[in-house]
């Protein structure tokens, strides 16, 4: 149990996917303009991560032990079809949610955090429960980073003091750098205890 908690907190804070591993930066920089959309995108991504972790575990245990060189291709095909499948399921079950997620749903396929999650889980040899916890933690961490960034960006927009030259990606990156520095503080969380 301790191990599972450690995996969750580590993926959530200490080794945050966005701020420590630089995974999922495209949506992080692209979609973090508004708080509401970032929350929705974060939740959808977490959902796909959990499904991917389960599929990756099945693939690793039953299929890929016979053909390890097919790992990458099979993972990416699984992710793409999962996203497609979830898209159809949500469209059928809850049209309102489907409309709210819009374009972000198909774009999850190209989010490197998802493929990264599957590869990290494989490289570390996580079992089923561990993989699931890892996916939940990573998803929560991604959502957390996205929300923090969106909040900061909304405030910065209100001030209107930012010079033209710095606006856009340059400023977002510097803000992300400061956020990442703050997250480094969590590194002491485990070594001390």
């Amino acid at each position: 149990m301790d191990n599972l908690i450690w995996i969750f907190v580590s993926a959530l804070l200490v080794n945050n996917f966005v701020l420590a591993y630089f995974l999922g930066l495209c949506p992080f920089l692209g979609v973090s303009g508004r708080l509401e959309t970032s929350l929705r995108l974060g939740m959808a991504t977490t959902f796909v991560m959990v499904i991917t972790a389960i599929c990756a575990w099945f693939l690793n245990t039953y299929v890929l032990i016979h053909a390890p060189y097919l790992r990458l291709i099979s993972f990416i095909v699984v992710i793409a079809s999962t996203v497609q499948f979830i898209e159809m399921a949500i469209k059928k079950l809850s049209p309102a949610l489907f409309k709210a997620l819009g374009i972000y749903l198909p774009l999850i396929t190209t989010n490197c955090a998802i493929l990264g999650l599957a590869i990290f889980a494989t490289n570390r040899g996580y079992g089923f429960l561990e993989g699931l916890t890892f996916a939940l933690g990573a998803g929560a961490g991604f959502t957390l980073a996205l929300i923090l960034m969106a909040g900061i960006r909304e405030e910065i927009e209100k001030t209107k003091d930012v010079p033209d030259l710095v606006q856009g990606t340059a400023m977002n990156l510097i803000v992300a750098g400061i956020l990442s520095m703050a997250f480094m503080g969590f590194a002491g969380l485990f070594s001390a205890g």
């Binding site: 591993y21 630089f22 990606t169 977002n172 990156l173 992300a176 400061i178 990442s180 480094m184």
Partner: peptide, 11 residues
């Protein structure tokens, strides 16, 4: 470390 990456690319 990670923050350096963000800051350098930003600059």
């Amino acid at each position: 470390l990670p923050p350096g990456g963000f800051l350098t690319l930003g600059l």
